[in-house]
Design a protein around this nucleic acid. Structure first.
Length: 170
DNA sequence: GTTGAGCGTT
């Protein structure tokens, strides 16, 4: 099963209406009871994993940079930084702003010092509330394929000049 | 004065 942005996109639809999201969450938690069952909640079988409870539930990150979506349009860099700061050393926390409208796009990026901290923040902050909205954390993709590394086009004196020996030596 | 897809300006 693919546990990735797809599922996040699905959940985000359910969590969109903040005021009416309670019914969605309630339906999620009430799905165990089929109706004719008592209100007694069965304890979780913690010993089912035995002594070898090693589940690869969390794939390792390949980048210390995280993509945070679902942000409120009131959430700024500082808010993002304040929310992700206690989980590790943030090297950068930025929300993306639209240059045309001048407003926040509703998602941002956080970059930690190590992948380890980024993983922790990922687990701790994914599908959590921030500024009244449910945010989703995912590994960030590389920013750009680096299209133009600035080659000097002014070099008319490039090292490709064919040194033509003109003239006769005699 | 925001209501919602998505991966960024330096």
């Amino acid at each position: 099963m693919a546990l990735s942005t797809s599922s996040s996109a699905l959940l985000r639809r359910l969590a969109s209406s903040s005021t009416r999201a309670s019914s969605v969450f309630r339906a999620t938690f009430c799905s165990s009871s089929s109706g004719s069952g008592p209100s007694h909640t069965p304890p979780p079988p913690s010993s089912i994993f035995g002594d070898d409870a090693e589940v690869a539930n969390v794939p390792p990150l390949t980048t210390p940079k995280l993509f945070v979506s679902g942000l409120s349009r009131l959430t700024t860099d500082e808010k993002l930084q304040g929310a992700f700061a206690p989980f590790g050393r943030l090297l950068e926390a930025k929300v993306v702003t639209d240059r045309v409208s001048g407003r926040l796009k509703g998602f941002g990026f956080v970059r930690y010092a190590t992948i380890e901290e980024a993983e922790k923040a990922w687990q701790e902050m994914n599908a959590k509330f921030l500024d009244g909205w449910v945010i989703f954390v995912d590994p960030a993709k590389p920013r750009q394929p680096k299209p133009a590394p600035q080659q000097d086009t002014r070099s008319s004196h490039a090292g490709f000049t064919t040194n033509k020996t003109v003239g006769w030596c005699g």
